[in-house]
Nucleic acid binder design. Structure first.
Length: 592
RNA sequence: GGCCCCGUAGUUCAAUGGAUAGAAUAGAAGUUUCCUAAACUUUAGAUGCAAGUUCGAUUCUUGCCGGGGCUACCA
């Protein structure tokens, strides 16, 4: 904020005048609640440059600031901390300067500095589950945060639509499906296909057990179960372009896509560009050949191509098989390059992928750097921890997952029953109510997931479900709804400018400080790819507002100037809540 | 074995190397003639262990202990 810049300069001036020393930086922090003041200068780091007693230095700087800076009202020094009280008029001036700003806190995209954010990237053999939800929410939110920080952003996903796991669902459907379709069964397409993925695994396990019973050892049985051999055969046919297999593949994938579309729409995420693995899995081989000539890669005797990363503390990693076919890494190299070809203004990419692939992305990024792409300097693996259940890991194969669609429905139902109990929705139509339950239910879920550091594992207990009270999405939505209620009741006579001679209530000042923090919080969240920073910021602001709301009468204030100021202050807080929550992909309700 | 991530109140989460480690929830106690009590106000309770760097360490370094992951010519 500009005040901090100004003050920083003034502190440097003070030190220069008092001690004839140039200070490189000045460290600020918000003053802790227990002390008097608004901002605090930490004196300790200066001791490196200025010899002396920190208390004395702090006091002298404080005296200088009071004399030379109009906004500084008072100072006090506690240990090595110089606490500065800022004049009310400064905050009121600040408020006047931003109160009518639309999208306050967002930076408009000006440059061609574009980023691509990849997230979701599901397999087309089963429906989305809670792990995908975490992925989707993180990726979408980071994309929105980057946009708000001034970047151009392309959201993308790569759909993993080929491979043995896809053939497993197809084969099981062929064998056991009896022609079942989404229409005939009433099942959502992705769920229908997922059902056959589970059915495959069941049949596979049965066959293994039979083979083991008949004397085969387990490892061999796992490789030679007839149904697995059939699936492998199907994959070969697919790769050869066998018309029947390809047509089945297209049919079942289309069911899955229809299902995914519904789920994405319900979660509220979207994409600017889709990539399909069936189109991209051959990419990358030419690049590897080029890289081989440039000496980035080397060839082993059997003809396979590798990169040696032992200098970087990693291992050797294969990039092309001895038969010349691609591995996962080859595809990823090719796909990254393809994206920059498709969108030449891309200057960086974010990959939202679980932390079990940390190593893979470390290697991928290194390879791209070694190949000499300038954009390779701006690659980020948005890595996140697993979502576990009390019973352990989620496994789609075994059907032990929290299904995304079920979970969303569950959240809506919980929101509904709480709302019904509170009974505040008189006059709302059924349709409006339904929309509200979705807003609240999803708000609870999204906030619950996004407020946590992505790196941490989440233990999700479906029995306890997600809270609607305390540090939660609904808590913040509720505050927003209350503010809207005030605005509806307030008369229209709006002040064009707030008198800066107004004396601020302590809570009002805290709110203004909170509002002031929003733009830098957005930037910080973008730099750190961290929705959690936005969530925590919003919570702090809202908590402060609720305390203000409780202590200070807004509409009941007799002084018209003050009343109008409080109404506008509330309105601005509401706008910031809405803007912040938009970055998390969470809606805010007019009533609740 | 090697490498990576995590370890903070009973539980779920915070804390750019800074002051007396913040919240929420569960527990105890209050606040509705007053703008929505999904709220507000009290209260009790925590840095895995051991060294080191520093004026100052939850944060950085090392070792150990716990939990998870990666370590495929799978994707």
């Amino acid at each position: 904020m500009s005040l901090q810049n100004d003050l920083g300069q003034k502190v440097k001036d003070a030190v220069k005048e008092l001690y004839q020393v140039e200070l490189p930086t000045v460290e600020f922090q918000p003053t802790r609640k227990d002390f008097e003041g608004d901002v605090t200068v930490v004196v300790f780091p200066m001791l490196r440059f200025v010899k002396g007693n920190p208390v004395q230095i702090g006091t002298q700087i404080g005296d200088y600031l009071q004399e030379h800076v109009a906004e500084v009202a008072k100072c006090n020094v506690v240990q090595g901390f110089l606490n500065i009280v800022i004049e009310d008029s400064y905050y009121l001036n600040f408020f006047n300067s931003i109160k009518d700003e639309v999208d306050y806190g967002y930076v408009k995209s000006t440059s061609n500095d574009a980023m691509m954010v990849e997230y979701s990237s599901p397999n087309t053999n089963k429906p989305l589950h809670l792990g995908h939800i975490r992925n989707n929410l993180l990726g979408y939110s980071v994309a929105e945060i980057l946009k708000a920080s001034g970047k151009k952003v392309y959201k993308t996903q790569i759909i993993n639509d080929r491979g043995i796991h896809i053939c497993k669902s197809m084969l099981a459907w062929q064998k056991f499906g009896d022609g079942e379709t989404p229409e005939s069964s009433g099942l959502k397409g992705d769920h229908l296909v997922g059902k056959y993925y589970v059915a495959f695994d069941k049949a596979y396990k049965e066959q293994i057990a039979e083979l083991v019973d008949s004397g085969m050892d387990k490892e061999k049985a796992e490789k030679e179960a007839p149904i697995l051999l059939e699936a492998q055969d199907m994959l070969r046919k697919w790769e050869a372009g066998d018309a029947e297999v390809v047509s089945l593949w297209k049919k079942m994938n289309s069911w899955v896509y229809a299902g995914f579309d519904t789920t994405y729409k319900n979660i509220g995420v979207d994409f600017d560009k889709l990539y399909y693995e069936s189109d991209t899995y051959l990419l990358g081989r030419d690049v590897v050949k080029d890289g081989l000539e440039k000496g980035v890669f080397f060839k082993k005797e059997d003809g396979s191509v590798w990169i040696d990363l032992t200098d970087e503390g990693l291992d050797e990693k294969i990039v092309l098989r001895s038969d010349g076919t691609a591995v996962y890494m080859t595809q990823d190299i090719g796909t990254a390059i393809q994206r920059v070809t498709d969108f030449p203004d891309i200057n960086g990419m974010v990959y939202t992928v679980g932390n079990e692939q940390d190593y893979h992305f470390k290697v991928l990024f290194l390879i791209l750097k070694k190949l000499g792409y300038s954009w390779a300097e701006q690659l980020y693996h948005l890595s996140y921890g697993m979502v576990d259940l009390p019973s352990g890991k989620m496994k789609s194969r075994e059907g032990t997952v929290v299904d995304a669609d079920d979970l969303i429905q569950n959240m809506e139902e919980t929101a509904e029953s709480i709302s019904a109990e509170l009974g505040k929705l008189e006059g709302y139509s059924e349709e409006e109510k339904k929309g509200l339950y979705r807003t609240i239910g999803l708000g609870a879920l999204k906030y619950y997931i996004l407020k946590v550091d992505p790196k941490k594992r989440i233990l999700f207990n479906p029995e306890e479900s997600v809270d609607f009270q305390g540090n939660t999405g609904p808590f913040i939505q509720y505050t927003y709804a209350r503010i809207q209620s005030i605005l509806r009741k307030a008369e229209n006579g709006r002040l064009s400018v707030v008198e800066t001679s107004l004396e601020l209530h302590e809570k009002e000042k805290e709110l203004l400080k909170g509002i002031q923090l929003f733009p830098e919080t957005v930037q910080l969240a973008a730099e750190n790819f961290s929705p959690a920073l936005i969530a925590n910021y919003t919570y702090d602001l809202v908590k402060e507002f609720n305390s203000f709301y409780q202590q200070v009468s807004i509409l009941g204030e007799p002084d018209e100037q003050k009343k109008q100021f409080r109404v506008q202050l509330s309105q601005k807080v509401g706008e910031v809540i809405q803007s912040a929550f938009r970055l998390l992909g969470i809606d805010v309700p007019e009533r609740m």
